[in-house]
Design a protein around this nucleic acid. Structure first.
Lengths: 325, 325
DNA sequence: TTGTATGCGTTATCAA
DNA sequence: TTGATAACGCATACAA
């Protein structure tokens, strides 16, 4: 392993000179520069980031804490993060919490041990314990970002899509296609979030009225069981607040000879590959997952660099038409 | 930040004693132990892994080099890796090469800079440049594993599914369901791999004969264009060697009023979510992606620990029946 | 423009 | 059973 010391000796200068030259905070004579560069080339010098981190008390490693990575929602966000971090020469650690089942204390310990420069928490919004993790990290002054769904702001930057707007957009779109009785189908969402969707619904529908909320479980059979409720209420358009559930519901509807979109319009929340390959392909609200990741990374980097950053970032959803509405 | 020094002072012992005690290579007196433990608790000591790495010249960080992470094939493997590494208290770095477009030199530099303990290369089998990356890493004595498809062994451990067996299994299954004229549909596979599938086909079909090989592009329209060729050859069963292509072909067949499986059996290679949510759901050959990841991680750890490891690991595929054959 | 010296937090060698 | 001390590779305060 070639070190600065070797370079210094080979170039007949001091270690400090080489170090400062490489850190760009020292202008050296043309001739010295040439000798240093020659030494670096000849000896094949590669800087040791670990030593640098120890000295500087700061790494270039950012951790992503995610429930699981083999899921298009999470991996899309993560890919966005990776893209931004890579450009800025930061490394990306991944910790899958579902797999490793780490508690808050263990996560914090891991971060501190490894001198993680910043942490991006994705998801886990149904679990309250993650909030403790974040709080603990904040307490130790580790830059933190939370990206997923709206949660109450609590002293760390938040990023999430505008679900009210998503709901409004979706509902209005269904209405514009002549749908008069629209249901919001959800997969066990917390009330806090359901209320956001209901709000968007109300904004889109001029007449007073509340949406029909239908809870659904994932899977073919479970989706079938929800069809009678839709029929009873003479629903002609569903906005399914979970992409996979939307696909299964579409399957169940087709199986029950309910045509999409003629008899029932199906709108899905989320625009991953699965809406595309569903039969029929599903019109959906795109929540901008990759962008969510990109922006999360930007904010964590701003924090690390002690620059200003927005405490709350709300992403604007958009609609992707595919004919299921 | 609390350091060993602080602990030592607080417990009235030397730094060396604390260090060795914590590394489990020193038995100390019960009383000393109690004092050390008390100090650790009181001061909230967290070991500094970075300093440890510098001293030991070895990190606990493993890098995964992957084309992209937002793809179920890659993320499933990665999740398997994450699972195994996590249990062994190793950290996982992710580098998305498609995103960052790093060349071989840059990858190696990154690995050396960060003192990466081992590298797992996934995929990129169509690209020859990755082989240079691997070779460079091997040259620098960094433990390496390659996981994806069969490539010629070249001095580093390989992991891949048994594609001949997969093809044999699939073909035999199609035949067992009464299919007499079977085509292998592939998405621009290199000849090297096509030959493996042809071999498996031959092993399954007793009579002499070669499979009809049909090249296909991904996407609905492109899949449609392949249907005439299937009709001309009176094909009654297709084994599609790419999961996404299988889904699109199934769509195209349905649209062309060709019933699955009555008129055409469709078998897919790969068992991610998309085969499950396709309409109809696709019977497939499971290539054991998660297991591939788990085993890759095990082998990289063996290398890191200077233990014996298998140079080649071949995974046995299995069939998952869903009624499309 | 360059060099000397110290220390980041840990492990490891040697001695006690 | 314990301690003193020298590295690991680098950055930086201070000198020259």
């Amino acid at each position: 392993m070639t070190t600065l010391k070797d370079i210094a000796k080979h170039a007949n200068v001091s270690v400090a000179t080489v170090s400062k030259y490489l850190s760009l905070d020292l202008a050296v004579k043309k001739e010295t520069e040439a000798r240093i560069q020659a030494a670096i080339k000849e000896l094949g010098y590669v800087p040791n980031v670990v030593a640098k981190a120890l000295k500087r008390k700061e790494t270039f490693n950012v951790a992503v804490i995610v429930p699981k990575i083999n899921n298009l929602y999470y991996s899309e966000i993560t890919s966005g993060i990776s893209q931004t971090l890579g450009k800025q020469h930061y490394n990306l650690f991944i910790y899958e919490v579902d797999q490793l089942n780490l508690d808050e204390g263990e996560i914090l310990q891991l971060m501190r041990e490894n001198m993680i420069a910043g942490i991006i928490f994705i998801g886990l919004f149904s679990d309250e314990s993650f909030k403790e993790s974040i709080r603990a990290a904040v307490e130790w002054e580790i830059p933190v970002v939370y990206a997923n769904r709206y949660i109450s702001f609590d002293g760390f930057p938040l990023l999430y899509p505008d679900l009210v707007q998503a709901s409004k957009l979706g509902t209005a779109y269904l209405a514009s296609k002549g749908r008069r009785r629209i249901a919001l189908v959800h997969k066990r969402l917390p009330d806090r979030l359901l209320e956001l969707f209901a709000k968007g619904y109300r904004q889109a529908i001029e007449e007073d009225g509340e949406p029909l909320l239908v809870a659904i479980e994932e899977g073919m059979e479970l989706s079938e069981s929800v069809i009678p409720a839709l029929a009873e209420n003479r629903i002609d358009g569903v906005f399914v607040l979970n992409e996979l559930s939307a696909v299964y519901l579409a399957k169940a509807l087709t199986k029950a000879n309910i045509r999409i979109p003629e008899d029932m319009a199906v709108l899905s929340l989320g625009n991953s590959l699965i809406s595309q390959i569903s039969t029929p392909e599903l019109t959906c609200i795109d929540l901008q997952n990759r962008e969510l990741g990109i922006r999360s990374a930007e904010i964590i980097l701003s924090q690390i660099r002690k620059q200003a950053f927005k405490p709350v970032t709300v992403l604007e959803p958009s609609i992707v038409e595919r004919g299921s509405v």
